[in-house]
């Protein structure tokens, strides 16, 4: 959910955060089990916490999940630390003895994939967008220095199934249960992937959908609006956003996010039409609207990114 370089904690702050977590924070022992709930038959979701990417506990801000077929299990996103990944694996083990055959990352951000290493011993296929490996390579320093990524994360994405440019399969079979994978053109990031479980009509939207939390634009504003158009044509009974509560009101969730992104676009277009510079546009940042959480954290960067994209239109 963060952008590479949004630059929360630096090395020092990061080290301090780790110490705090170990002492008074919310220590996650390796054997702890992540809280999950079954939102549809065989579809389990852990809801991330509505915290800043700078906050203690930021390792647990993304929604994670797994889907159980008759043969095996697919894990969708693994959390923001090795400990979260291990706790997610414990949650899988608590609900099924079937092997984990796929680990799917919806995009490159730390809160969605730093737990990958916990699943290496299961020897799953790691799947992601064709551009995920390159995105991970360029984010490596940030992920290691700021978010404490361990080498296993990079090993998982280096697997042959996620070599650069390798498209994920269009669908995967968990045994009597097929998941449809869609790799999107640049939207939230340049490596967004969604997962649709046809059996229950459940969509794991990754960070193409934020509910309640201010969307974070790293890829393309126009691309994201286009992706929302396409998503709106899908028959979805239940959506698991990247952040925020899962809902059965897919239309309303899409409409709220579209409204935020369209307002952002209109704001920047007006600034450009008035000949305003990027700093002038940032100074006149919009007042928080729509009840979005963490507005101050994401709005300035969204404005900057949108300005850079739209100034050439």
């Amino acid at each position: 959910m963060t952008r590479a370089g949004a630059a929360p904690g630096r090395r020092l702050t990061c080290a301090v955060a780790v110490l705090l977590l170990g002492a008074a924070g919310r220590p996650l022992a390796a054997a702890e089990t992540l809280e999950v709930r079954e939102v549809a038959h065989g579809v389990f979701v852990h809801e991330g916490r509505p915290l800043s990417v700078n906050a203690q506990g930021r390792e647990d801000i993304a929604n994670l999940g797994f889907i159980v077929g008759s043969r095996c299990v697919a894990v969708i996103d693994t959390g923001g630390s090795a400990a979260i990944g291990a706790a997610l694996r414990e949650a899988v083990r608590a609900h099924t003895a079937k092997p984990v055959c796929f680990v799917i990352n919806t995009h490159v951000h730390f809160d969605h994939l730093l737990g990958n290493g916990a699943f290496l011993s299961d020897h799953p296929r790691f799947l992601g967008h064709p551009q995920l490996p390159a995105a991970l390579a360029r984010s490596r320093a940030l992920l290691v220095d700021t978010y404490g990524a361990q080498p296993q994360v990079f090993a998982s994405i280096a697997a042959p199934s996620t070599a650069p440019g390798t498209p994920p399969p269009a669908d995967i079979d968990l045994g009597g249960r097929r998941l449809k994978l869609t790799a999107w053109p640049t939207a939230h990031t340049d490596c967004d992937l969604t997962v649709f479980d046809a059996a229950t009509g459940t969509l794991f939207a990754g960070d193409l959908l934020f509910i309640g939390r201010t969307p974070a634009l790293e890829g393309s504003l126009n691309g994201w609006l286009g992706a929302l158009d396409d998503l709106g044509r899908e028959r979805v009974r239940r959506v698991i956003p990247g952040h925020g509560p899962p809902t059965t009101d897919f239309r309303q969730a899409l409409a709220a996010e579209r409204s935020y992104l369209q307002d952002l676009k209109a704001t920047v277009q007006a600034a450009l039409a008035a000949g305003q510079s990027l700093p002038e546009t940032l100074h006149q940042a919009r007042a928080p609207a729509g009840g979005w959480l963490l507005w101050e954290e994401n709005e300035p960067r969204n404005l900057a990114r949108a300005y850079e994209e739209l100034e050439w239109q």
């Binding site: 630059a7 320093a141 000949g275």
Partner: peptide
């Protein structure tokens, strides 16, 4: 305070024509 600006991949905006120039005067 920032990180990675020199290695960030090209932006998502369509690449356009190399050398195209935009002038944007203030009001």
């Amino acid at each position: 305070n920032a990180a990675g600006g020199c290695s960030t991949p090209p932006s998502a905006a369509p690449p356009g024509t190399l050398g195209e120039v935009r002038f944007r005067p203030s009001a």
